[in-house]
Simulated scan of single mutants.
Amino acid sequence: MSTELIVITGAGRAGQLGEALARHFAALGASLALVDRAGTESAARVADLPAEQKGQRFTAHAADLSDPAATEKLAAQVLAAHGTTGIHAVICAAGGFGATGPVSDADPDAWHKQFAINLDTAFATTRAFLPALRDAKGSLVYFGSASALPVGSPKGLAAYAAAKSGVLTLMRTVALDEKSHGVRANAVAPTAIRTAANLADMGDKSSYVERESVADVVAFLVSPAARNITGQVITLA
């Protein structure tokens, strides 16, 4: 990979997936725009990356990705910071997990939070960055969940699974809508990923997908080798 620009949302806390994605793409030679809500965590991730190679640039950005207007401003800031009109890929890794229990007992605020942090962020990010993706004939990668698939179990996870189902439907819609513009959209649907947060919550005895394995799949999906792949969900277990 050359110095194409990759935008990674949710690239915040250390030990999480966004960190591994950033390191992987930096090692491949890409320029990166890392995004989190406050900007402080993404700035720390930029500082942790290896020294930039010739032509590379790493930047950190802050935005409330559930706010479409704020996300539009973010897109303009990213393009200005990197001096480009085109983006090679947007990795929509922003989101979060939450168990809401049986639907009969679910807290409405917890329900709405899952949609805000998972589906609303994916929508606003997609909408804001599509012009730049069209310019570069780039691609999007979204994150679903095994719990949102027909073979998965959403028991106790109704809000999270429903929000991730929405993300997968958004992905398929974007793949169809944007095919004529040369923009591709795909998703990965992992089981639990070995992140610092999951280890703290579930311990080290659970079965995990390694962060580096997820990064490998995402890098493939935005590479020329996957130029004919769009509208697909890759499960990771």
Score class of each variant (00 low, 15 high):
97 F>P: 00
72 E>L: 01
72 E>I: 01
100 T>L: 03
73 K>C: 10
110 A>I: 06
106 A>Y: 09
92 C>D: 09
102 P>N: 02
100 T>F: 05
107 D>A: 13
62 A>C: 11
115 F>G: 13
96 G>C: 01
107 D>M: 12
110 A>H: 13
55 G>D: 10
95 G>R: 04
74 L>W: 03
54 K>W: 08
66 S>F: 00
81 A>V: 14
112 H>M: 09
82 H>E: 13
113 K>H: 10
87 I>M: 03
84 T>M: 07
80 A>C: 13
77 Q>L: 10
87 I>S: 07
60 A>H: 05
104 S>Q: 12
117 I>A: 08
68 P>V: 01
56 Q>I: 05
107 D>T: 11
87 I>L: 07
59 T>I: 12
75 A>L: 07
62 A>H: 06
71 T>M: 05
107 D>C: 12
105 D>V: 09
58 F>C: 11
103 V>Y: 07
117 I>S: 09
86 G>H: 06
65 L>T: 11
101 G>V: 06
59 T>H: 04
97 F>R: 04
101 G>P: 00
95 G>Q: 06
52 E>K: 08
105 D>L: 12
56 Q>R: 09
90 V>E: 04
104 S>F: 02
102 P>R: 09
69 A>Y: 03
93 A>L: 02
77 Q>S: 15
98 G>V: 00
108 P>W: 11
51 A>K: 11
61 H>A: 14
94 A>I: 00
96 G>I: 00
53 Q>I: 02
76 A>Y: 05
102 P>I: 04
79 L>T: 15
63 A>K: 04
88 H>F: 02
53 Q>W: 04
105 D>A: 14
69 A>K: 11
74 L>R: 08
101 G>A: 06
112 H>P: 02
81 A>I: 14
94 A>W: 00
109 D>W: 03
54 K>H: 13
76 A>N: 12
67 D>A: 01
52 E>T: 12
62 A>R: 03
57 R>W: 10
59 T>W: 03
57 R>S: 15
58 F>K: 04
70 A>S: 14
101 G>M: 08
64 D>T: 11
80 A>Y: 05
54 K>D: 13
88 H>I: 01
99 A>H: 02
59 T>C: 14
87 I>F: 04
72 E>R: 07
79 L>V: 15
74 L>T: 11
61 H>N: 12
93 A>H: 05
74 L>D: 12
51 A>C: 05
63 A>W: 00
68 P>A: 09
89 A>I: 01
101 G>T: 07
68 P>N: 12
107 D>I: 09
61 H>E: 05
66 S>W: 00
98 G>F: 00
